[in-house]
Amino acid sequence: MTMTEPRDGATAPTATEPLLHVADLHTEFRREQGEPLRAVDGVSFDIAPGRALAIVGESGSGKSVTMRTVLRLLPRTARTTAGTARFQGRDLLTLSARDMRRVRGRDIGMVFQNAMEAMNPTLTLERQLTEHLLWHGICGKAEAKKRAVQALADVGIPEPERRIRVYPFQLSGGMRQRAMIAMAMITQPALLIADEPTTAVDVTVQRQILDLLAGLKERGTGIIMITHDLGVARYFCDDAVVMYAGRVVERAPTRDLLDTPRHPYTRGLLGSSVEVGGRDRPLAPIPGSPPDLARRPVGCAFHPRCAEAQLPRCREDQELIEISTTRAAACWRAGDDDD
């Protein structure tokens, strides 16, 4: 199954090869003592051009490590032990470091949660924006500057000719986040990976940034958005995968996922989320906290927190079970109430 089938035949391209095909990814972290930690443990997903995929999960679920694995930006203590990440016909995991550098920033753009940390505080926006263009040899200096000004204008930064000379700290948080998106988009990458791009900004700015990213999507950019915010996923992403303890526990078109969640963990996330207008709905928090990967529960990692768990079935490994052509969940009971 792929996530690329159009739901209503509207926008998604048909039957073409996915933009990025990730299969059976495994990444582990070395420790001073004991077995390595399996931070990413058999993750697979696809993304098509012009689509947005949400990777949803709590801290420690492996969503950021998954993306860092694909981008080959892991710390030294981490090692990818298996899997493929096919992007435009090549496996990113086997590219030379040199070839990989040509992909990052040119074909794959990156947007991070905190622009203040992601940008170089000692360089003006002009230097940072033109760097990708000049380093990849896409154009000359004069043209690069022109494009940088245009890129700032495109993300709605007023007075781009003046703003291009400022340093990141001279911008407000919302403006910095936009500048970082401009930086990621200036090379017109085919794929954009955004790690919690709106978590650090105010709600009114969040909407503007998502609408900005929606414009890119319309022009055919595939977007992977890492988020813990189910409202953002619903608003922006066509499809979603839910991660827990390094594995995908459910994948589905976002609306289906949130309207009829099939994995108990997804249901738990929904029961935990507070919504405006939901004052009278009692909160149903998931008890306990996400597992320490060094002490990953056997079988389904969620079963110690799961209200619906049945032993010994849940102590066995749970594979992703396909429920329909577009949905899968890693729970042996997920298919039970199929409609």
């Binding site: 709590e58 801290s59 189910l230 738990g268 935990s272 507070v274 149903a284 928090p285 998931i286 906290s289």
Partner: peptide, 11 residues
């Protein structure tokens, strides 16, 4: 805090 933990603390 994470969503599931936020819900616990709010409760």
């Amino acid at each position: 805090l994470d969503v599931s933990i936020q819900a616990q603390i709010l409760s």
